[in-house]
């Protein structure tokens, strides 16, 4: 006769822990459900959205008008986008380095004055999306690539500034202490104790910033900043869907090229250090 007692029941979380886990999950789910209700989301439409997307793309966006993107004007716009992203990235990195120095807690020249300035500058550049920067700059400077470059600069300050500051905060503090005890001022400390340690990482981050800035530069023109985005806006408003499809494909292709290039450059920099 086999023993009749039931095997011990095993569960991953014990009693009080399981209550917290499932309670949190329940609250999150309730919030999501309420959000869907609040936002007036049509649930069947949401469930059928991906199928609908395939249908719409096949119906309206196929075949893309490739001849349009091989046009001289559009190729010039691609070049403009490239130049804008490069300029914005360069100016942004140049501005981000001092801001990152101010906002790194361990080497900040003055923790009362410069630290909040640096932090606030980087955070406010980061918090506002690049398209909003573009609209603001367009309203002040007028349409054109100057506004686009300025917006990309702000975007890159926010993006690179945070990464730079994180990198500076992770350095070896020995050289910094040595320089300080020898009586160096904060600028000398930065130049001779911090820069040699972060040089390679900064180069990598700068290249990555350019890559991200190029991605942003493709839509800056949509709000009046010049480049490929301007063509996108025009054709979207004229409902030239086949041309829009071709433009989106060209954006994807250019972003892939930029990503490949930045990956290769970063690998080269890492090898050369």
């Amino acid at each position: 006769m086999v023993d009749q007692h039931t095997p011990p029941k095993w569960s991953r979380y014990k009693y009080p822990e399981s209550l917290y886990k499932h309670g949190t999950l329940l609250i999150v789910l309730l919030f999501l459900g309420y959000s869907l209700h609040f936002l007036n989301v049509d649930i069947p439409l949401l469930l059928g959205a991906l199928g609908g997307l395939v249908g719409v793309v096949g119906d309206r966006y196929y075949p893309p008008d490739v001849a349009y993107v091989l046009d001289r004007g559009y190729l010039a716009a691609i070049l403009d986008t490239l130049q804008m992203s490069f300029l914005g990235g360069f100016a942004g990195v140049c501005l981000a380095i001092p801001l990152a120095w101010f906002s790194a807690w361990n080497v900040s020249p003055n923790r009362r004055v410069f630290f909040p300035i640096g932090r606030l500058g980087v955070i406010s550049c980061r918090a506002i999306h690049e398209t909003i920067w573009t609209i603001l700059f367009v309203s002040v400077l007028g349409f054109g690539m100057l506004a686009g470059v300025s917006a990309l600069t702000m975007f890159c300050v926010g993006f690179a500034g945070k990464l730079f500051a994180d990198e500076i905060e992770a350095i070896e503090m020995g050289p910094v202490e040595a320089m300080r005890s020898a009586g160096a001022n904060p600028f000398q400390v930065f130049l001779y104790a911090v820069v040699p340690q972060v040089r390679v990482a900064f180069t990598g981050i700068a290249i990555y910033t350019w890559d991200v800035a190029f991605r942003a530069a493709t839509v800056v023109g949509f709000f009046g900043g010049g480049g490929m985005g301007w063509y996108l806006k025009r054709n979207v408003q004229q409902l030239e869907n086949l041309r829009v499809a071709a433009i989106i494909l060209s954006i994807i292709a250019m972003v892939l090229v930029a990503e490949f290039l930045s990956g290769w450059l970063r690998a080269t920099v890492n090898r050369a250090k």
Binding site: V57, R215, I248, I251, I252, E259
Partner: peptide, 13 residues
């Protein structure tokens, strides 16, 4: 590689 604005444009249509 597709920017969120472009995604939004596609989904709005």
């Amino acid at each position: 590689s597709v920017h969120e604005i472009v995604w939004a444009l596609i989904f709005v249509s």
